[in-house]
Design a protein around this nucleic acid. Structure first.
Length: 258
DNA sequence: CTGCAGGCCCTTA
DNA sequence: TAAGGGCCTGCA
């Protein structure tokens, strides 16, 4: 168990930022499952967190998983320099958000499940999918043995066939591609459109210029930017901008996010 | 009973 | 290229 002073980090904000489906609050602790491991985290104050793991495990797994080697202060200063008041406010509000380094295959499956779906149901399906594997997420080879009915059982609904199809993907090839090439490759698969492909690119491939446009982002761009939002301005951190926008917009009164 | 939730696909014009 | 309907499923 180690106590850490972490700037630009909030486990609660990350858990509610929509990028992960396996971090949940249980009593006073946050329970994060990733890379086959379970970690309990407590947030003491704005800066202080307690990680219930060894120093070694923190260094080997969690420091990288939570992207703690990246200085988000630099990104926030870039946002300040744009002079975009809405974005500045959003980045201040979501001060503790980071882009997690999650497993590619897990992201592919998770975001296929996410379409036309709500978060509790996405989480439930993922929990059921992982149930036979403990803290591990089933590998692509595990799921290659699944039949349509196996995916229907976990509540994947019409997305079940998409999951069957995606088992033909070549993960190593996907990893070798640049951002735009990766999008094209992903979108060849049935059930992966522009939004899901961008989520996979950002959260599974760490392409920082990926900018998933879901209903919230589209609404924001339409209502606050009059459909005139140039993401090229944010080259090198557009994905983080997307996270601040998404998190802030969903926090606003009357827009609760269960 | 409808409506709908962090899209996608297919069909029309 | 844009607009519209349908889709698994579970919950309000």
């Amino acid at each position: 168990m180690i106590t850490l002073q972490l700037p630009d980090f909030s486990i609660e904000q990350i858990a509610n930022s929509g990028q992960c489906f396996r971090i949940n609050k249980r009593d006073e602790k946050w329970e994060a499952i990733a890379w086959g491991k379970l970690l309990y985290i407590q947030q003491i104050d704005k800066l202080t967190h307690i990680f219930h793991c060894s120093e070694e495990e923190y260094m080997n797994i969690w420091m990288d998983y939570f992207d703690l080697k990246t200085d988000y202060g630099i990104i926030k200063r870039k946002i300040l320099k744009t002079g975009d008041d809405y974005l500045i406010k959003a980045s201040e509000y979501g001060y503790g958000i980071r882009i997690l380094k999650q497993d590619l295959w897990e992201m592919i499956v998770s975001y296929i499940l996410s379409q036309r779906n709500n978060i509790p149901r996405i989480k439930k399906a993922i929990t059921m999918l992982c149930e036979p594997y403990g803290y591990k997420f089933p590998t692509i080879n595990d799921l290659k043995n699944y039949k349509l009915q196996d995916f229907i059982k976990i509540g994947a609904g019409y997305r079940s066939q998409y999951l069957i199809d995606i088992c033909d993907i070549n993960l190593e090839y996907l990893r070798s591609l640049e951002y735009n090439e990766a999008l094209l490759y992903l979108k060849q698969f049935n059930g992966i459109g522009d939004k899901v492909a961008n989520c996979i690119a950002l959260f599974g491939l760490y392409h920082i210029d990926a900018f998933p446009r879901d209903v919230w982002i589209n609404r924001t761009i339409s209502e606050r930017y009059n459909n005139n939002f140039d993401i090229a301005k944010f080259e090198g951190y557009a994905g983080i901008v997307q996270q601040y926008m998404f998190f802030y917009e969903r926090s606003l009164p009357g827009k609760s996010h269960i």
